[in-house]
Design a protein around this nucleic acid. Structure first.
Lengths: 217, 217
DNA sequence: TGTACATCAGTGAACGCGCGTTCACTGATGTAC
DNA sequence: TGTACATCAGTGAACGCGCGTTCACTGATGTAC
């Protein structure tokens, strides 16, 4: 298999051009931002003529949407892995989830850009939308689990919780965990900032680490 | 004064080209995102030859940085107006501050883009950095004021508070209050979401509306 | 008040460049028999 | 096992386009005397 032009000579057929183009897109996005990526350059990067990509993607946007979809899928998988069904205890697992969010934004900035900064409408393709929904569903499910043991009267709406957590995570990720314009010096790591924020927030809801301990964990 | 080509004939000199270019940049950014703005198009928009902008800006980035700086200045001013020195009571003023944050992101999407999504380093110019710092300082000052009356032992760090509030505001603004990729249907307005989030957060810190009432307001 | 001159702001033509897209084509691969 | 043929994936040349940038230039403005 040849993914890049550096792997030596190849025959007339590339063999895996679609994958190679996606990889090229990721590297170009990582290097120059979501705007700084062109169809032609991706082709060049894959060692192929500028007309070749049209065999696999209608245009630039279709390629970008595919990158974003894969990004959301990897993101959802990472979040699910971190949450791990709330084991061994929901509160601890929830914090793990927050750290996983930031870890993804940091280790996969190109995916993160494609997912949130290209300006592509989510409705562009059903697959893209579904992948995005699946990622959000992890956070929402975790929120539900976290408040499941609270008395019904004091139980906050899980959807709102999920939106708050997601917003703060996204805000911290884009302001501090990546090379963004508004970034400024932080007296702590983005991870610590998020963890503290989530802690305060949960405290405000009446959810606390004590709920893990009450459960005997 | 002529700001746009639609204001009828003008003489050899434009008279206010610098301002006209800034306005053109704002309209183009609003219409096509921070990437979809070119020097040439801005010139055309201002009704001037493509070489003319070089009299006022070294290049595209210098123009963008100037737009971002003006954006941060307008932003800081809007936040200060909303906070209004914490009158009549800090807790209420703090909520006003949050709403002002979102209001700015919604009513000035072009400025907001230039400020946070162009990928320009803040250090690019001292003026840009200073303007950004001034905007952040408003939030920080407000946080300080809000916790000033708490017993010293239970007083949370104001810087951290400001960072949390800012992050959540920015997260909500970019996820839900603008045409972004990750946007999804909300069962409430972004303003309500933020207000609820800030409320829960402050509750978690032990700051509450009661503190306004205690002060007899 | 007038005039000469320096300075400034915008012109317009030109350049090289990379992009997106199309086209008829060709080499490779897979399959029916 | 071999052969004929359809399908597929990539070629390479070409096109029109808009961009960024430079250049010698020129019209307008301001100022010294």
């Amino acid at each position: 298999m040849n993914w890049s032009r550096n792997d030596g000579p190849r025959g007339y057929h590339h063999g895996n051009l679609k994958e190679a183009l996606i990889r090229a897109a990721l590297e170009l996005i990582a290097k120059k931002g979501p705007g700084g990526f062109t169809f032609a350059e991706a082709a060049r990067f894959a060692g192929v003529s500028p007309a070749a990509p049209y065999r696999h993607f209608r245009d630039r946007d279709e390629l970008l949407a595919d990158v974003a979809r894969r990004g959301f899928e990897a993101f959802a998988a990472a979040l699910e892995r971190a949450w791990d069904g709330g084991r061994p205890a929901p509160f601890a697992a929830f914090e793990r989830l927050g750290r996983a969010y930031l870890a993804f934004a940091r280790s996969e900035p190109a995916y993160y850009s494609a997912m949130f900064e290209t300006g592509l409408p989510v409705e562009m393709s059903p697959e893209l939308q579904a992948a995005g929904d699946r990622a959000f569903a992890v956070i929402r499910t975790a929120a539900e689990r976290l408040i499941a043991d609270m008395p019904a009267g004091r139980r906050p709406p899980a959807l709102m919780m999920a939106l708050h957590i997601w917003s703060m995570s996204h805000g911290i990720a884009s302001l501090f965990a990546r090379g963004d314009a508004g970034r400024r010096a932080l007296p702590m790591s983005p991870e610590e900032l998020l963890e503290a924020g989530v802690l305060v927030y949960l405290q405000g809801l009446g959810v606390s680490a004590a709920s893990d301990r009450d459960r005997g964990k």
